[in-house]
Design a protein around this nucleic acid. Sequence first.
DNA 1: GTCTATACAATGATAGAC
DNA 2: GTCTATCATTGTATAGAC
Lengths: 189, 189
Amino acid sequence: MGRWKPDARGRLLQAAIDLFGEQGYEETTVAQIAERAGLTKATLFRHFSDKREILFQGQGALVEAATAAVGGAPDDAAPFELVAAGVTALCAVHREDDRGLGRRLGAITASSAELQERAALKRSIVTDALFRALADRLDDVHLAGVLADAGIRAYYDGYAAWVADADGGATLRETAAAELRAYEALIRP
Amino acid sequence: MGRWKPDARGRLLQAAIDLFGEQGYEETTVAQIAERAGLTKATLFRHFSDKREILFQGQGALVEAATAAVGGAPDDAAPFELVAAGVTALCAVHREDDRGLGRRLGAITASSAELQERAALKRSIVTDALFRALADRLDDVHLAGVLADAGIRAYYDGYAAWVADADGGATLRETAAAELRAYEALIRP
DNA sequence: GTCTATACAATGATAGAC
DNA sequence: GTCTATCATTGTATAGAC
């Protein structure tokens, strides 16, 4: 311990977000990011499998949260209670006090086709995890599909609304739950 | 005219599919593809914006087909008839007699994370196009979202079933329509 | 067991000639 | 529209330093 400065990942993430904000994503090289973090390119690739992944690490946690929440719901939970549990767990992964990070990440992602592609992949992975967990409990793949899609829509649209909100407005849990209620009215389980 | 061999795009696509099948996607370089098509790497990139795009060109046609079908449906069409029109139009983009191409493409895509990422992006783009077209007609973003997601699920799952079918089985239109009916029973517009 | 150094292959962009 | 040529960047691989 103490042989290297601590929190290399955190420093890389911070350097990346700063540089992307200053110069744009495509204009920033991984060598620049590594340099600002006091590391080398090779070390950066030890922490992140590729350049896009610097901004999208959180996805593993989302899959696990949704899967565990749906799988661990009470035996007598109604179909829609299962999705609600999953969506609530997804929201709980984020820090309720940090809209700023979401705003910055959103702006950077919107600026690059490469990042939108990664974002689409992440969304599909989380959707599939929720779908599998629901199908496991419901034994009805079509119902599981409709519920998973609605839950993910509620989560993403709720996230967008939460990020766009002035600070101090509704919590992420609340904005996502409001979206989910609108979808609940349209589905008959 | 006649200064170059015709159908460069078609030759590139054929060469790519053949080589990917023989050697695998990641093991095949764009230089090899261009060479087999009798062209150079630089020319390949004039026809396709990147290596992944060689396999995923069809997407522009899907967006236009779905948008036009939903937008052009009768004024008194019920919400579910709008989705059905969109899904039918998506199916019509494919040749009903060529399951083999879909099978080959599916196998190649499954073999590479890079291609799965592009596939996820394409699905999200088509979903969004269908969503916008439906929202335009329905004036209800939540209903449009649920219907778009269900329609895209029916299309993709129907496509998978059609491709997996022995030749001579149900048409793509039929397998997708069967999926769509299952979703219709779960949604109240 | 994490970091550095270096060399390397492949993608994709660019400029100019035919 | 295609070719040649050159180039920067990503991402991998290897061997070694602390």
